[in-house]
Design a binder for these strands. Structure first.
Lengths: 200, 200
DNA sequence: CCTACCGATCGGTAGG
DNA sequence: CCTACCGATCGGTAGG
């Protein structure tokens, strides 16, 4: 998550970070191609040329945002997968972690989930790898659930897709005011996923 | 769904339709802002200026694609909601219809689900209305399920979101080869949604 | 459907 | 961080 990673001075990294925050918001709202470098600069109160003492290109900006998003998801899920709790509560915590990332970093999450395809090949592959790693962590959680006898022994692929679909779509509808918090949401969804919505 | 709606001659509407198909593909792959009018023209084998005897603007093209998408979803779900079957099979059929639209018209569905926000205000509102209508149809299905005693009597909002999240995300991962067909997919997902993934 | 072009804007740079 | 600008490309148009 930290963007002050390469030993910039405090002021430099503060300026840089403000640019990232502004770009995150704009890329999330209007898309990467729909956002101009001049809009980003204007939102920071400077001229477009001045951006380039802090960034090297527009795509560089996108990559750092997308990569931060990837790291946020991985960093939230990894400790849960590695923990020694039972499979059921790991599944619940995993979904809460995912929803937590989406709701507390809505712009970055949306850019990560949707604008990463605008990256050029080399950098897109780096992100593809992290996406694969994240999916594999979920595959692990589900296969633990099956081997512990908590989950029905079905093709785990579609359960994984079902869970991630629910978690990913959150940025499309979630409002900070009026909706359940991430923990409550994860409880609600995981109750349906595990026990079903049917009346018994 | 029909694009030959305003009485154009056969040839005109054929040319027009080819432009829509090409634009659908490109908007889906690279986004509305990431696609240039020249790319669309080139994919049809003509020059950019020549497009404008068939369309009136780039945004017009987007609107027609998005609106067709909206109509496809509404047209597939409406007869199911109006039918007199039991709530459980209407829910299953509704999800199959939704997944059917997404998988058989993947490009149009993706553009409808994601690029509609690029529309200017007036036309975005028209689409917002149709999205609301579609959501309300689902709300109806769920409330029937509750009143028929098929579904647990919980806040229906999150069940509706859960179902639509699963259905909408399909375009992100579905491959025509190797995956289940829409009916099978809907069965699989609806089984988990109704009965849960937990072992009992 | 093409030729020929338009004003505007794009991402980015040089030099201070 | 600004001034001043670059070549390229954008959506779109006039006239055939």
């Amino acid at each position: 998550m930290s963007r002050a990673r390469k030993g910039f001075s405090l002021n430099e990294s503060k300026s840089k970070q403000e640019i990232y925050e502004v770009a995150e918001k704009l890329f999330s709202k209007k898309g990467y191609h729909g956002t101009t470098i001049r809009e980003i600069a204007q939102a920071r109160g400077i001229l477009s040329g001045s951006l380039y003492s802090h960034i090297s290109s527009k795509e560089d900006l996108l990559f750092q945002i997308v990569d931060d998003g990837a790291e946020a998801f991985l960093g939230a899920l990894e400790p849960i997968v590695r923990s020694s709790e039972d499979a059921k509560s790991k599944l619940r915590q995993g979904l809460a972690a995912h929803i937590g990332v989406v709701t507390t970093q809505m712009d970055a999450a949306k850019v990560f989930l949707h604008e990463w395809t605008a990256l050029s090949e080399f950098r897109r592959e780096i992100i593809q790898d992290k996406r694969d790693r994240y999916e594999n962590l979920w595959a692990e959680l589900i296969s633990e659930g099956i081997s512990e006898g908590v989950l029905r022994d079905q093709d785990p692929k579609y359960l994984r897709i079902l869970i991630l679909s629910i978690g990913n779509w959150v940025y499309e509808w979630y409002k900070t005011t009026g909706d359940l918090n991430p923990e409550q949401l994860a409880d609600r969804f995981m109750d349906i996923i595990l026990n079903g919505a049917a009346f018994k």
